[in-house]
Write a protein that binds this DNA or RNA. Structure first.
Lengths: 247, 247
DNA sequence: CTAGACTGTGTGGTCAGACCACATGGTCGC
DNA sequence: GCGACCATGTGGTCTGACCACACAGTCTAG
């Protein structure tokens, strides 16, 4: 009886969100076809498509054309892409100052490192608790030691290492946020490299600092890990005088 | 000459993002009309609409019907809504565990409180630096002392107070993220209140803790503010045994 | 001359229908 | 038995149409 003054695509979005909340849709499930959904909700197919487009950008569904069990819109719940898109566009639209992105990354990553060190400490005191898995972090560090890496390759490995710290921590929100923060200023980071006095010196220093951070974590030194990460990130951004992107 | 294998709406999105990056579009500007944009980019109007819908959900534009200078899609760059939608849906789709949301909020808000205390300290040592503006925070605390508040009203004021701390800090990324985190678990928070042993006792304790946090900040005690926030948030969520939302 | 009503125009919002490329799964013919 | 073939259903896209809306200029009544 009540009128629905929402826009049609909002109706669709709310319906799908409701299905998710009630468990009628789970990751791996397929959404009904666009035509069926439109008929069920009494809206046009274009409105359904707008809602699904939003879900896709937000990292909730993946769409596939064709036929068979892998076709259609499938719930995936991968927040990384959505977070990246949001932050990248907000930086572009001047809603997110680059300085704030860097500061936030600083806070989150320092906290992650401290928490990892804390977990190592806990694992040492209580043998029944598991040590955080830092294997991936070590792998990325090793890869960064390879000679002849281009600057872009090094930056990619650097990003992978920093993200692997968050992954070792296991907090999905932090993982997605860190990925988004990093992605949002990727262009700025690449431009910053050009302003460095000496890339070989800087990359060597970065590698050493990475080893130091990992050592502090493995030594169960939360405060040390925290301050080392703080110095690592703030130092790098000060050095590159991060300001404008490389168009 | 090169083929564009992107989907049509991605072309539109990329075009607008490019205009933003190059400064051809700024906050306050109006996007070209949907029909004009479609013709310019050689795509259908529906594809343009899908891209604009994404921008709207991400908090980059606000759309208005009608005519005149306020009609059409206007760049606004308000990330709060987009962050909220992303996190709320990711929680619904089980991409973000509620526990991770709470943990992240803990980390961010504790860091914010510490930074505010640090700023107070800096302002005390260097008279040329400004004190953070905590006036809004005090206003919300005062409002929370009003008698006869319903639980929902109290929760709303509580959310406003916590957000005002981030606003005092001035970091746009943290402001938007905190708003999103809070919004994502709002339903869970309301459900948690029902599991409290005594709402009057809890609300009184929360008010006292808020005062304590603010006092630590104004006393330029970063470590104290950090630990008080930590205890405040983790204590509350432990007490409400935050698990399932109120359907 | 002024104030109000009126209408033209351009906006986003929505729908319906059509066509395409694609991937699958069954069927038919060898 | 097996490969070629085609019917089917999917998302992706475009077109055209209509609506409600809000403004701006015009027109009319006072």
């Amino acid at each position: 009886m009540t009128v629905d003054d929402r826009r049609a695509w909002e109706t669709v979005l709310a319906h799908i969100e409701n299905d998710l909340l009630w468990g009628r849709l789970k990751p791996g499930d397929r959404l009904p076809g666009e035509r069926a959904l439109a008929a069920d909700l009494g809206v046009g197919r274009s409105s359904v498509r707008e809602a699904i487009r939003v879900l896709e950008v937000l990292g909730l569904v993946r769409t596939n054309v064709g036929s068979g069990p892998t076709s259609g819109a499938i719930i995936v719940a991968l927040p990384g892409g959505g977070m990246s898109a949001l932050m990248r566009l907000q930086v572009a639209a001047q809603g997110f100052p680059v300085a704030d992105i860097v500061k936030t990354r600083l806070v989150l990553e320092a906290a992650v490192a401290a928490e990892l060190a804390e977990a190592v400490l806990t694992a040492a005191l209580h043998p029944d608790t598991a040590n955080p898995d830092l294997g991936r972090c070590v792998q990325w560090l090793t890869a960064m030691d390879a000679p002849g890496l281009s600057e872009d390759e090094f930056l990619a490995l650097d990003a992978a290492f920093h993200l692997s710290l968050a992954e070792a921590c296991g907090n999905q929100v932090v993982i997605a946020t860190m990925a988004g923060l990093r992605n949002a200023i990727e262009g700025y980071a690449r431009a910053g490299v050009a302003r460095l006095a000496s890339w070989p010196d800087t990359s060597a220093r970065l590698r050493a600092e990475h080893r130091g951070i990992l050592a502090a974590i493995e030594a169960a030194d939360p405060a040390g890990a925290h301050s080392l990460v703080h110095a690592h990130i703030s130092g790098y951004y000060a050095e590159t005088r991060l300001t404008a992107p490389a168009h």
